[in-house]
């Protein structure tokens, strides 16, 4: 039963990240996702220190504040400070992450948050922390998160689509591109912090970028891309668990590795197909 809960948790994390990751990939903003996933760390620690509780809602607010803060910081450094976007991202998220690391290490005694857990997550302990109806608490939390994200994408699909494909045109229609930008960034912040406990700050990026990239290679339709990304994520969760059992290693690490393997396979098959097929449509990049 533990195996089931671990795989389910991994699959839920992967699905949430995959859905949002699709939009990050299409917006060419995956590195902002990376930045957010690291920058929420001080938010979590500060929220924890202030509230003295590990209740998700407190941590969530702390993380969300810092998630939006770093997107603001990046925008400001890039637009006002005339910095290159990648330099602005690199500078701001490492700074915030470093502050988070310092906070954790100096308050280690009082705080039930340790660096390993935050950096790498500990998905193997998920089945120990049971919630309502003997279902692990994380499964409940991530399940609700996944439903919220699906709802968000369902309702906001057209807004996300327009502002992602052609932001200038969207602005010319009078649609608030800032609103959609920050809505997506907030969703990424929430997802990151709720995925922390299971996969940690570093590997969550693999879940944000990997499945979406696999799906991007496989299809040229956005609804299909969303579904395929979720499937790729779930597959990685299952495959990763058994890989970890086989080599007796980190489960989250194995899941992230399987995503990498999936990507390599899909890319390889695509290349081979393109080389071997002499069909005329390949001229058009189809």
């Amino acid at each position: 039963m533990d195996a089931f809960w671990i795989i389910l948790t991994g699959a839920l994390v992967a699905s949430c990240c995959a859905l949002l990751g699709c939009f990050l990939v299409l917006r060419k903003m995956t590195m902002v996702g990376d930045a957010i996933s690291h920058a929420v760390l001080p938010g979590i620690v500060i929220a924890y220190l202030l509230a003295q509780s590990r209740a998700s809602i407190t941590l969530l607010i702390g993380a969300a504040v810092f998630g939006v803060l770093i997107t603001l910081l990046i925008e400001t450094l890039h637009k006002q400070g005339k910095m290159q976007l990648d330099a602005a991202i690199g500078l701001s998220f490492t700074l915030l992450f470093a502050i988070g690391v310092i906070l954790i290490s100096s308050f280690t005694g009082q705080v039930d948050l340790d660096q390993d857990c935050v950096l790498y997550g500990e998905i193997a302990y998920i089945p120990l922390d049971l919630g309502w109806r003997a279902i692990p608490r994380q499964v409940w939390v991530l399940g609700i998160l996944l439903m919220s994200i699906v709802l968000f994408i369902q309702i906001g699909y057209r807004g996300l689509f327009i502002t992602t494909f052609d932001e200038t045109f969207a602005a010319s229609l009078g649609i608030s591109t800032l609103f959609w930008h920050y809505a997506l960034m907030s969703a990424v912040s929430f997802t990151t912090v709720l995925s922390f406990e299971s996969v940690g700050a570093i590997l969550v990026v693999a879940f944000l970028v990997g499945p979406a990239s696999v799906a991007y290679l496989l299809t040229d339709k956005l609804p299909q891309m969303l579904i395929l990304a979720v499937l790729a994520g779930i597959l990685a969760s299952i495959g990763g668990y058994f890989l970890a059992v086989a080599i007796n290693g980190s489960i989250a690490g194995a899941m992230a590795s399987v995503i990498g393997i999936e990507f390599g396979l899909v890319l390889g098959i695509k290349k081979i197909r393109r080389l071997t097929s002499k069909a005329p449509q390949s001229v058009f990049g189809g």
Binding site: R158, I162, I175
Partner: peptide
Amino acid sequence: VDWDFPANVLDVVLMGRSKPKNIF
């Protein structure tokens, strides 16, 4: 714009029918 975006012709043309009022 990025013409490798996963969308079809009708999706793009329908963008012209979107307004702040009907976006949801």
